[in-house]
């Protein structure tokens, strides 16, 4: 973990409610895709945890959906002018060593962003990466072209059928062959994936957090291997340890 005051390089909407923010930061403390940062925002007491979408040596990219006061405040940070107090390099992130040659990445809604950094790393290792991006409707879709530009095979599903495959991510997943899976998204999607998956995999969970670095026990969950703090021992848990 590392605390920095980061200037906002870019902050703009991708859809009606999803925004992309790029922060100037020394990213040495970010060690794996699936980790998160924790932002201190004006007028709010607790920091707000946001998953890392992508990073390079000098910047970190976050994609976030405006769902409450915290993400609303984030959208008011002006690119090029504002700065924000950030804790970087939080959480365990995804374990890439288990992917096998053809991993499947599944992002649902605002769970899509961490899949981008993960796809990038896996592709750099020469893996055959397939991505399923699940949304409710066409207007909510973001990042499809970015995943394609990386060189991943990309499927998009929409619940209402307004774009791509009509239905849920599992409607695509059930017909694919893959060596391992990685996912981030809402709990109903997780439960459907758990029923559909035929390999091991990793799920990234979210929970309301106090600190984000393991001190307060605010986000503890039960696993088959004992209690785990989503912020510190997670947010990524292995399929085999999850208590559904």
């Amino acid at each position: 973990m590392d605390q920095q005051i980061c200037s906002v390089l870019e902050n703009k909407p991708l859809t009606d409610s999803v925004w992309r923010m790029r922060l100037k930061a020394d990213t040495a403390s970010i060690t794996a895709p699936g980790q998160f940062v924790n932002l201190k925002l004006d007028g709010l007491y607790l920091r707000r945890p946001i998953s890392v979408c992508d990073w390079d040596e000098g910047s970190v990219t976050l994609i976030y959906k405006i769902v409450g006061k915290g993400t609303e405040a984030m959208s008011h940070l002006w690119g090029g002018q504002a700065s924000v107090d950030v804790l970087l390099g939080l959480g365990n992130g995804y374990d890439l060593t288990k992917s096998g040659p053809s991993p499947l990445l599944i992002g649902g809604g605002v769970g899509v962003p961490p899949m981008y950094g993960l796809a990038k790393k896996l592709l750099a290792q020469g893996k055959d990466v397939t991505v399923i991006l699940g949304f409710n409707t066409k207007d909510e879709i973001f990042c499809e072209e970015e995943f394609k530009a990386l060189g991943a095979k990309v499927f998009v599903t929409t619940v209402d059928g307004s774009y791509g495959v009509k239905g849920f991510v599992t409607d695509v997943m059930k017909d694919l062959s893959y060596t391992y899976f990685y996912t981030c998204g809402p709990m109903p999607m997780f439960k459907a994936i758990e029923k559909t998956a035929v390999t091991g995999g990793q799920f990234s969970f979210e929970e309301r957090m106090g600190c984000g670095f393991g001190a307060c026990m605010g986000c503890t969950c039960k696993t088959k291997y004992g209690n785990k703090r989503i912020c510190k021992d997670g947010p990524v848990l292995e399929r085999e340890e999850i208590v559904w």
Binding site: Y45, L46, K69, G210, M217, G218, C219, C221
Partner: peptide, 9 residues
């Protein structure tokens, strides 16, 4: 959980 909530102050 949830065990944590934001409050004024």
């Amino acid at each position: 959980t949830p065990r944590i909530a934001e409050c004024p102050g």
